[in-house]
Design a protein around this nucleic acid. Structure first.
Length: 269
DNA sequence: ACCACAACCTGGCCGC
DNA sequence: TGCGGCCAGGTTGTGG
Protein backbone atom coordinates (compact mmCIF):
# COMPACT_ATOMS: atom_id res chain seq x y z
CA UNK A 1 0.00 0.00 0.00
CA UNK A 2 2.58 2.43 0.93
CA UNK A 3 6.16 3.37 1.16
CA UNK A 4 7.56 3.69 4.67
CA UNK A 5 10.92 5.12 4.11
CA UNK A 6 14.28 5.28 5.77
CA UNK A 7 17.46 6.58 4.19
CA UNK A 8 17.75 4.05 1.32
CA UNK A 9 14.09 4.38 0.33
CA UNK A 10 14.30 8.19 0.47
CA UNK A 11 17.44 8.11 -1.66
CA UNK A 12 15.60 5.96 -4.20
CA UNK A 13 12.88 8.62 -4.40
CA UNK A 14 15.56 11.30 -4.76
CA UNK A 15 17.13 9.37 -7.64
CA UNK A 16 13.76 9.23 -9.38
CA UNK A 17 13.12 12.94 -8.90
CA UNK A 18 16.62 13.83 -10.11
CA UNK A 19 15.78 12.35 -13.48
CA UNK A 20 12.69 14.50 -13.94
CA UNK A 21 12.69 17.72 -11.91
CA UNK A 22 15.85 19.71 -12.70
CA UNK A 23 15.03 22.49 -15.17
CA UNK A 24 11.25 22.10 -14.91
CA UNK A 25 9.08 25.10 -14.03
CA UNK A 26 6.00 25.02 -11.79
CA UNK A 27 2.90 26.10 -13.71
CA UNK A 28 0.18 25.30 -11.16
CA UNK A 29 -0.25 23.78 -7.72
CA UNK A 30 -3.12 22.01 -6.02
CA UNK A 31 -3.08 21.21 -2.32
CA UNK A 32 -5.93 18.86 -1.47
CA UNK A 33 -4.89 18.12 2.13
CA UNK A 34 -3.77 21.38 3.70
CA UNK A 35 -1.86 19.83 6.57
CA UNK A 36 0.53 18.12 4.16
CA UNK A 37 2.13 21.56 3.88
CA UNK A 38 3.99 22.23 7.13
CA UNK A 39 5.36 25.62 6.23
CA UNK A 40 4.39 28.24 5.13
CA UNK A 41 0.58 28.26 5.07
CA UNK A 42 -0.82 26.22 2.19
CA UNK A 43 -1.95 29.48 0.59
CA UNK A 44 1.51 31.05 0.69
CA UNK A 45 3.02 27.74 -0.37
CA UNK A 46 1.02 27.81 -3.61
CA UNK A 47 1.79 31.50 -4.14
CA UNK A 48 5.51 31.20 -3.55
CA UNK A 49 6.25 28.03 -5.47
CA UNK A 50 4.19 28.94 -8.53
CA UNK A 51 6.45 29.94 -11.41
CA UNK A 52 9.58 28.63 -9.70
CA UNK A 53 12.09 26.47 -11.52
CA UNK A 54 13.50 23.30 -9.99
CA UNK A 55 17.25 23.03 -9.80
CA UNK A 56 18.84 20.10 -7.97
CA UNK A 57 17.46 17.28 -5.85
CA UNK A 58 19.30 15.93 -2.81
CA UNK A 59 18.78 14.04 0.42
CA UNK A 60 19.68 14.84 4.01
CA UNK A 61 18.72 12.18 6.56
CA UNK A 62 15.18 11.20 5.68
CA UNK A 63 14.44 14.58 4.08
CA UNK A 64 14.23 15.21 0.36
CA UNK A 65 15.70 18.60 -0.51
CA UNK A 66 14.75 20.21 -3.81
CA UNK A 67 16.53 23.46 -4.60
CA UNK A 68 14.73 26.08 -6.65
CA UNK A 69 16.54 28.59 -8.84
CA UNK A 70 14.83 31.38 -6.86
CA UNK A 71 16.89 30.38 -3.84
CA UNK A 72 13.96 28.77 -2.05
CA UNK A 73 14.05 25.11 -1.04
CA UNK A 74 11.25 22.57 -1.18
CA UNK A 75 11.80 19.95 1.51
CA UNK A 76 9.75 16.81 2.03
CA UNK A 77 9.59 14.30 4.84
CA UNK A 78 7.67 11.18 3.84
CA UNK A 79 7.13 9.90 7.41
CA UNK A 80 5.29 6.57 7.35
CA UNK A 81 3.50 6.42 4.03
CA UNK A 82 4.49 9.34 1.83
CA UNK A 83 5.85 9.19 -1.70
CA UNK A 84 6.85 11.77 -4.30
CA UNK A 85 6.38 10.70 -7.89
CA UNK A 86 6.53 12.31 -11.32
CA UNK A 87 3.77 11.24 -13.71
CA UNK A 88 2.22 12.41 -16.96
CA UNK A 89 -0.81 14.57 -16.21
CA UNK A 90 -3.01 12.10 -18.06
CA UNK A 91 -2.17 9.24 -15.74
CA UNK A 92 -4.81 8.40 -13.12
CA UNK A 93 -4.44 10.06 -9.74
CA UNK A 94 -4.13 8.15 -6.50
CA UNK A 95 -6.98 8.41 -4.04
CA UNK A 96 -4.33 9.38 -1.51
CA UNK A 97 -2.77 12.22 -3.47
CA UNK A 98 -2.34 15.24 -1.17
CA UNK A 99 -0.45 17.76 -3.30
CA UNK A 100 -0.11 17.99 -7.07
CA UNK A 101 2.37 20.31 -8.78
CA UNK A 102 1.99 20.87 -12.54
CA UNK A 103 5.23 21.10 -14.49
CA UNK A 104 5.92 22.93 -17.74
CA UNK A 105 6.37 19.71 -19.73
CA UNK A 106 2.96 18.15 -19.16
CA UNK A 107 4.10 16.14 -16.20
CA UNK A 108 3.18 16.48 -12.54
CA UNK A 109 5.02 16.12 -9.27
CA UNK A 110 2.60 14.31 -6.97
CA UNK A 111 2.78 13.93 -3.21
CA UNK A 112 0.91 10.76 -2.32
CA UNK A 113 0.49 9.93 1.36
CA UNK A 114 -2.05 7.43 2.65
CA UNK A 115 -1.68 8.20 6.32
CA UNK A 116 -1.23 11.97 5.93
CA UNK A 117 1.78 12.12 8.26
CA UNK A 118 4.22 13.36 5.63
CA UNK A 119 5.06 17.06 5.33
CA UNK A 120 6.30 19.53 2.75
CA UNK A 121 8.30 22.61 3.70
CA UNK A 122 9.00 25.60 1.46
CA UNK A 123 11.77 27.60 3.07
CA UNK A 124 14.45 30.16 2.31
CA UNK A 125 17.08 28.43 4.41
CA UNK A 126 17.15 24.64 4.41
CA UNK A 127 18.95 24.59 7.74
CA UNK A 128 15.80 25.94 9.40
CA UNK A 129 14.49 22.41 8.97
CA UNK A 130 17.69 20.35 8.91
CA UNK A 131 19.84 22.00 11.59
CA UNK A 132 19.38 19.38 14.32
CA UNK A 133 20.19 16.34 12.19
CA UNK A 134 23.20 14.22 13.10
CA UNK A 135 25.84 13.07 10.61
CA UNK A 136 25.09 11.02 7.53
CA UNK A 137 26.04 7.40 8.22
CA UNK A 138 27.97 7.23 4.94
CA UNK A 139 29.87 10.46 5.52
CA UNK A 140 33.61 10.22 5.98
CA UNK A 141 33.33 11.79 9.42
CA UNK A 142 30.93 9.15 10.75
CA UNK A 143 33.01 6.92 13.01
CA UNK A 144 33.08 5.41 16.48
CA UNK A 145 34.66 8.49 18.01
CA UNK A 146 32.02 10.82 16.59
CA UNK A 147 29.21 8.52 17.67
CA UNK A 148 30.65 8.22 21.18
CA UNK A 149 31.10 11.98 21.42
CA UNK A 150 27.45 12.56 20.51
CA UNK A 151 26.05 10.12 23.07
CA UNK A 152 28.56 10.30 25.90
CA UNK A 153 26.06 11.78 28.34
CA UNK A 154 23.25 9.46 27.40
CA UNK A 155 22.29 6.23 29.04
CA UNK A 156 19.45 5.11 26.77
CA UNK A 157 19.57 1.74 25.05
CA UNK A 158 21.63 1.72 21.87
CA UNK A 159 18.50 1.16 19.79
CA UNK A 160 16.95 4.38 21.14
CA UNK A 161 20.12 6.34 20.33
CA UNK A 162 20.34 5.02 16.77
CA UNK A 163 16.70 5.94 16.14
CA UNK A 164 17.44 9.49 17.33
CA UNK A 165 17.97 11.59 14.19
CA UNK A 166 20.19 14.04 16.06
CA UNK A 167 22.65 11.23 16.80
CA UNK A 168 22.84 9.87 13.26
CA UNK A 169 20.51 10.84 10.41
CA UNK A 170 18.49 8.43 8.32
CA UNK A 171 18.19 5.22 10.30
CA UNK A 172 14.76 3.88 11.25
CA UNK A 173 13.33 0.71 12.73
CA UNK A 174 14.42 -1.58 9.90
CA UNK A 175 18.03 -0.51 9.48
CA UNK A 176 18.65 -0.15 13.21
CA UNK A 177 17.55 -3.76 13.64
CA UNK A 178 19.71 -4.81 10.71
CA UNK A 179 22.78 -2.91 11.93
CA UNK A 180 22.57 -4.24 15.49
CA UNK A 181 22.15 -7.79 14.22
CA UNK A 182 25.08 -7.41 11.88
CA UNK A 183 27.27 -5.98 14.63
CA UNK A 184 26.12 -8.60 17.14
CA UNK A 185 24.87 -6.04 19.66
CA UNK A 186 21.77 -6.42 21.83
CA UNK A 187 19.17 -3.65 21.26
CA UNK A 188 19.19 -2.80 24.97
CA UNK A 189 22.98 -2.50 25.26
CA UNK A 190 24.31 0.73 26.80
CA UNK A 191 26.95 2.42 24.68
CA UNK A 192 29.18 3.17 27.67
CA UNK A 193 29.49 -0.53 28.37
CA UNK A 194 30.60 -1.37 24.82
CA UNK A 195 34.27 -1.51 23.97
CA UNK A 196 35.51 1.00 21.41
CA UNK A 197 36.15 -1.97 19.18
CA UNK A 198 32.48 -2.98 19.27
CA UNK A 199 31.32 0.59 18.64
CA UNK A 200 33.67 0.63 15.67
CA UNK A 201 32.09 -2.62 14.49
CA UNK A 202 28.66 -1.05 14.92
CA UNK A 203 29.55 1.95 12.76
CA UNK A 204 30.97 -0.34 10.13
CA UNK A 205 27.80 -2.46 10.21
CA UNK A 206 25.64 0.62 9.79
CA UNK A 207 27.66 1.64 6.74
CA UNK A 208 27.47 -1.84 5.26
CA UNK A 209 23.75 -2.24 5.84
CA UNK A 210 22.95 1.19 4.43
CA UNK A 211 25.25 0.70 1.42
CA UNK A 212 23.72 -2.67 0.66
CA UNK A 213 20.17 -1.31 0.98
CA UNK A 214 21.03 1.65 -1.26
CA UNK A 215 22.30 -0.73 -3.94
CA UNK A 216 19.06 -2.68 -3.61
CA UNK A 217 16.94 0.51 -3.79
CA UNK A 218 15.58 -0.12 -0.32
CA UNK A 219 13.41 -2.77 1.28
CA UNK A 220 10.24 -4.24 -0.14
CA UNK A 221 8.13 -5.62 2.69
CA UNK A 222 5.82 -7.19 0.17
CA UNK A 223 2.71 -5.35 1.32
CA UNK A 224 2.68 -2.36 -0.92
CA UNK A 225 3.42 -0.48 -4.07
CA UNK A 226 7.07 -0.08 -3.03
CA UNK A 227 8.22 -2.89 -5.30
CA UNK A 228 11.51 -1.33 -6.24
CA UNK A 229 13.44 -2.45 -3.19
CA UNK A 230 15.31 -5.74 -3.17
CA UNK A 231 16.97 -5.53 0.24
CA UNK A 232 16.04 -8.58 2.32
CA UNK A 233 15.99 -7.94 6.09
CA UNK A 234 17.86 -10.49 8.18
CA UNK A 235 16.58 -9.28 11.55
CA UNK A 236 13.67 -6.88 11.04
CA UNK A 237 10.43 -8.84 10.99
CA UNK A 238 12.27 -12.14 11.50
CA UNK A 239 11.09 -13.08 15.01
CA UNK A 240 10.19 -16.76 15.10
CA UNK A 241 12.36 -17.67 12.12
CA UNK A 242 15.89 -19.12 12.33
CA UNK A 243 18.76 -16.65 12.44
CA UNK A 244 20.48 -16.86 9.05
CA UNK A 245 23.83 -16.64 10.81
CA UNK A 246 23.51 -19.16 13.67
CA UNK A 247 20.16 -20.89 13.28
CA UNK A 248 18.74 -19.91 16.66
CA UNK A 249 15.13 -18.77 16.70
CA UNK A 250 14.94 -14.98 16.41
CA UNK A 251 13.18 -13.21 19.28
CA UNK A 252 10.86 -10.25 19.56
CA UNK A 253 10.73 -7.47 22.13
CA UNK A 254 9.50 -3.89 22.41
CA UNK A 255 12.07 -1.11 22.75
CA UNK A 256 11.15 2.56 22.58
CA UNK A 257 7.58 1.49 21.81
CA UNK A 258 8.85 -0.07 18.63
CA UNK A 259 8.80 -3.66 17.53
CA UNK A 260 12.31 -5.10 17.86
CA UNK A 261 13.59 -8.41 16.52
CA UNK A 262 17.00 -9.82 17.40
CA UNK A 263 18.97 -13.03 17.69
CA UNK A 264 19.41 -14.21 21.30
CA UNK A 265 22.63 -15.98 20.29
CA UNK A 266 24.36 -13.43 18.06
CA UNK A 267 23.17 -10.44 20.09
CA UNK A 268 23.77 -11.45 23.67
CA UNK A 269 23.08 -9.00 26.46
C1' DA B 1 17.52 12.97 31.38
C1' DC B 2 14.59 9.45 30.77
C1' DC B 3 10.33 6.99 29.99
C1' DA B 4 5.59 5.93 28.71
C1' DC B 5 2.02 7.26 26.11
C1' DA B 6 -0.99 9.90 23.05
C1' DA B 7 -1.55 12.17 18.85
C1' DC B 8 -1.36 12.51 14.00
C1' DC B 9 -4.02 9.04 9.98
C1' DT B 10 -5.46 5.11 6.91
C1' DG B 11 -5.77 0.50 5.71
C1' DG B 12 -4.57 -4.39 5.94
C1' DC B 13 -4.97 -8.46 8.43
C1' DC B 14 -6.64 -11.69 11.89
C1' DG B 15 -9.95 -13.82 14.73
C1' DC B 16 -14.72 -14.33 15.76
C1' DT C 1 -19.48 -10.14 4.98
C1' DG C 2 -18.81 -7.57 8.83
C1' DC C 3 -16.83 -5.78 12.93
C1' DG C 4 -13.48 -4.95 16.49
C1' DG C 5 -8.83 -4.97 17.71
C1' DC C 6 -4.18 -4.87 16.52
C1' DC C 7 -0.42 -3.71 13.59
C1' DA C 8 2.59 -0.58 10.58
C1' DG C 9 9.30 1.61 7.98
C1' DG C 10 8.13 8.40 11.90
C1' DT C 11 8.04 12.38 14.70
C1' DT C 12 6.43 15.52 18.29
C1' DG C 13 4.52 16.91 22.50
C1' DT C 14 3.00 16.05 27.31
C1' DG C 15 3.28 14.62 31.85
C1' DG C 16 5.39 11.82 35.39
Amino acid sequence: MSLMPELPEVQTVVNHLSEHLPGRRVTAVNVSWHRSVAVPSHRLFVQQISGCRFDSVARRGKYIVVSLTSGLHLLAHLRMSGDLIVRDAAEPHSKHERVCIDLDNGQQLRFVDTRKFGRLYLVKHREDVLKDLGPEPLAEEFCAQLLLDRVKERRSPIKVLLLDQTVVAGLGNIYVAESLWRAGIHPLARVQRLSTERVRKLCESIREVISEALKASGTDLGDGVWKKGAYVPKAYGQAGTPCVRCGRTMRHMVVAQRSTDYCPQCQRR
